[in-house]
Amino acid sequence: MIARFPGRRFAGRVARHAILILTAAFALLPFVWMVSLSLKPPEEIFQADFHLWPTAFHGVENYRVALTAAPMFRFLLNGLLVCTAIFALQLLVCIPCAYALAKLRFRGRDTLFSAVLVGLLLPPQALAIPHFVMLNVFGLLDTYAALILPWAISTFGIFLLRQFFRSIPDEIIRAARLDGLGEFEIIWRIMIPMTAPALTAFGIFSVVAHWNDLFWPLIAVRREEISTPALGILLFRDDEAGQFFGPLMAGAVIIVAPLLVAFLIAQRRFIDGLAVTTMR
């Protein structure tokens, strides 16, 4: 393409990028601040003048405290376990549900889908007390199960995957039936590979939400051994508020890092998944 107004085009691009950079900076600022604080000694944190890079480098001490004062690796491991289990259960429930809602014809399907939409409207906090009571009845409070089971069914996941499954042509499913695939095999061999970007996107939503979740673990769990990272980080604050800002921030950095790495790895697929959603 030949630009008719090269000057104007260039100015437009500069303006576009300026806006994008500004927004990105705005979003990144808390992270930068977090990293900066995690490297500073306690005195400097409360100083009036602000340096991005600490005048006295205290990073080693802060990170040592963060890693030793609390069982940080244990928290990370718990986080990994809980998030993996939640996501696995969600897939186990969502994929067949979404397939049935998208591609099978049965009486009451639309009513069921409306029920899913209603479920989407409910804030998870509203269900906290019923969940708490139920877990108490089954004697599951303060266990891994208490962290995992309430999230096993994701209405958001059912909704998202149903939309994706609907975009797969019926003829492919008919062809698969004629080729001798059963319904579960159609899901496994056709639907899942064809909607991999959507599943990745859903995975990121799910893992980020539950890795960072503080509300529910705070209610369901008291033991340190099964605390998730977000809950574990509270230990720093609880002890002597204020004094431990450096290690607290160091802990926060350690907790955020795995998510960032995972996102960077899955970034391409995540964006593909979202792009497909917007196209429909």
Binding site: E171, I172, R174, A175, R177
Partner: peptide, 20 residues
């Protein structure tokens, strides 16, 4: 009888090949 038991094969307008 289900489709797979009927010993028929079908060619579709959109071909319906498995893209993956």
């Amino acid at each position: 009888k289900r489709p797979k038991e009927r010993d028929v094969a079908m060619v579709f307008q959109s071909y319906a090949l498995y893209p993956h």
